Simulated assay, not measured.
Amino acid sequence: MHHVQSAGLRERKKQRTRQALATAALRLFAEQGYEETTIADIAAAAEVSPRTFFAYFPSKEDVVFAEIDDRLAEVRERLARRPPGETPLETIRDSVLNVLEALVTEHGEYGAVQVRLVLERPALQARALQRLHEAQLEVAGRLRELCPDIDEIDAMAVSGLAIGCMQAVLTHCRRHGMDPGTTRAALDRALMIMERGLGSIPALHKAAP
Rank of each mutant, 00 (worst) to 15 (best):
S159K: 00
H3P: 08
V64S: 03
A7H: 10
Q19I: 07
A135Y: 00
G8E: 12
Y110K: 01
A140E: 00
I42M: 06
S59F: 08
E109R: 15
L89S: 06
A80T: 06
H205S: 11
V139G: 00
P58G: 10
I163G: 00
R142K: 10
R196N: 13
A40P: 05
S200Q: 11
D188L: 12
R121H: 02
A25C: 00
P50R: 10
I68A: 14
I201P: 00
R12A: 15
A55Q: 13
A126W: 03
E145A: 09
H205C: 01
D154R: 02
A126F: 04
F65H: 06
L72E: 09
A7C: 09
Q15C: 08
L161E: 06
L187M: 11
F65K: 01
R27V: 10
V158F: 03
G8C: 13
Q167W: 13
A208H: 14
A73L: 11
T87G: 04
G108D: 08
L143S: 05
R51E: 14
A46T: 07
L21S: 07
A190Q: 02
Q125W: 13
V113L: 03
P58S: 09
V48M: 02
I68L: 13
E74A: 12
R51C: 03
R16D: 10
R81T: 13
V169I: 15
F57L: 08
R144I: 01
D151A: 07
G164N: 00
R16Q: 13
R71G: 09
L124W: 05
A203P: 04
K13G: 07
L103C: 09
R51S: 14
A162N: 02
E138Y: 04
A162M: 10
E77H: 11
P58Q: 09
M194A: 12
A20R: 04
A186Y: 02
E134A: 12
A157M: 12
I193Y: 12
P180G: 01
R51Q: 14
A24Y: 03
G85C: 05
H172A: 14
A43Y: 02
R144M: 03
A24L: 05
R184C: 08
P202I: 04
E120K: 00
V96L: 08
R184Q: 05
E74Q: 14
L97P: 05
I39S: 07
L137T: 05
C147F: 01
Q32E: 13
G8H: 11
A22P: 04
A43D: 06
L100F: 10
A157K: 08
Y110V: 09
R184T: 04
L9W: 15
L9H: 15
S159F: 01
A45M: 09
Q32Y: 02
M192R: 14
V115P: 03
P88F: 06
P50F: 05
I153F: 09
R18I: 07
I193D: 08
A80Y: 02
E61H: 12
Q5D: 15
E36V: 06
V63D: 00
R144S: 03
P180R: 00
R142I: 02
A24C: 03
A66G: 08
K60H: 07
G181V: 10
R78T: 02
E74G: 15
L117R: 02
H176E: 13
